[in-house]
Structure formats: structure tokens, C-alpha cells
Computed example of a mutant assay.
Amino acid sequence: MAKQRKIPMRKDLLSGEMFPKKEMVRVVRNADNTVSIDPTGKAAGRGAYVALDPAAVKQAKRKQVIDKAFDIKVDPAFYDELYAYVDHKKARQELFGESNK
């Protein structure tokens, strides 16, 4: 009998809910205070996780949630980039199932 592996969970920056890490997108602020999407989940810097919920990303832009989390001013274009990325990842997940990273 195979041993059940523990699924790493992360808290969604936007909703405060816990989700499996594989179902989230990591956003990172690096040493020179630039904020970017981290598709590998391994980039150096302060990270935060966002669930695959395009509506929540739109709301986050209005409330400037990422600005507050990283305590810096984030370019509004970054929120648009994050929205497009999350929307694409969610569509792929729905098309191909959870096995696709």
C-alpha cells in the first residue's frame, strides 16, 4: 500500500483561504523591489500566493492588495498581467485537469 503524500497548502493573499500550492500562482518581490509572477515557485524574494480566480485579481487591483502585502507601489499594469496569467492558468486547468502544472 502506497503512503499518502502530504499536499503542501498555501494561503491565498486575496481571500485568506487555504489552497493546494499546485493550484496557485506565486507572486514575488525581489531585492530591487520589483514584483513579478513566479511560474517556477522558486524565485528569490518575498513571495505570496494567489488562487486561480480572475475575479479576485480584478478586485485585488481595485483594493491594491499586492501593494499592501509587499509594502510598495505596484504598477497597475502588473495586475493586468497577473489577471491574464491567472485566467490562462485557470482555463488550462479546466481543459486538461489538475495534473497539468
Rank of each mutant, 00 (worst) to 15 (best):
A2Q: 13
A2I: 09
K3P: 02
K3H: 10
Q4F: 10
Q4Y: 09
K6S: 11
P8M: 07
P8S: 08
P8C: 07
M9E: 12
R10Y: 01
R10D: 03
K11Y: 02
K11S: 09
D12H: 04
D12K: 03
D12I: 03
L13Q: 01
L13D: 00
G16R: 10
G16H: 11
G16E: 10
E17S: 13
M18Y: 14
M18D: 14
F19P: 01
F19N: 02
P20V: 08
K22F: 06
E23F: 09
E23G: 13
E23S: 13
E23W: 04
M24W: 04
M24F: 05
M24G: 03
V25M: 10
R26H: 06
R29H: 03
R29C: 10
N30S: 12
A31C: 07
A31V: 09
S36W: 02
D38M: 07
P39H: 08
G45W: 00
V50S: 00
L52M: 11
L52C: 03
D53Y: 10
P54H: 00
P54W: 00
A56S: 12
K58L: 12
Q59E: 15
A60H: 04
K63W: 05
Q64E: 12
D67Q: 05
A69E: 11
A69Y: 12
F70E: 03
F70I: 02
D71W: 04
D71F: 07
D71S: 13
I72F: 04
I72D: 03
V74Y: 01
V74L: 05
D75G: 05
D75H: 11
P76T: 10
A77M: 09
A77L: 11
Y79E: 05
D80S: 15
D80K: 13
D80E: 13
L82I: 08
L82F: 08
Y83T: 07
Y83F: 15
A84P: 02
A84D: 15
V86A: 08
D87E: 15
D87F: 10
H88P: 01
K90H: 13
K90T: 07
K90V: 10
R92V: 14
Q93T: 14
Q93C: 05
E94S: 11
L95F: 09
F96W: 15
F96Q: 12
G97I: 06
G97C: 09
G97L: 08
E98H: 08
S99C: 06
S99G: 11
S99K: 13
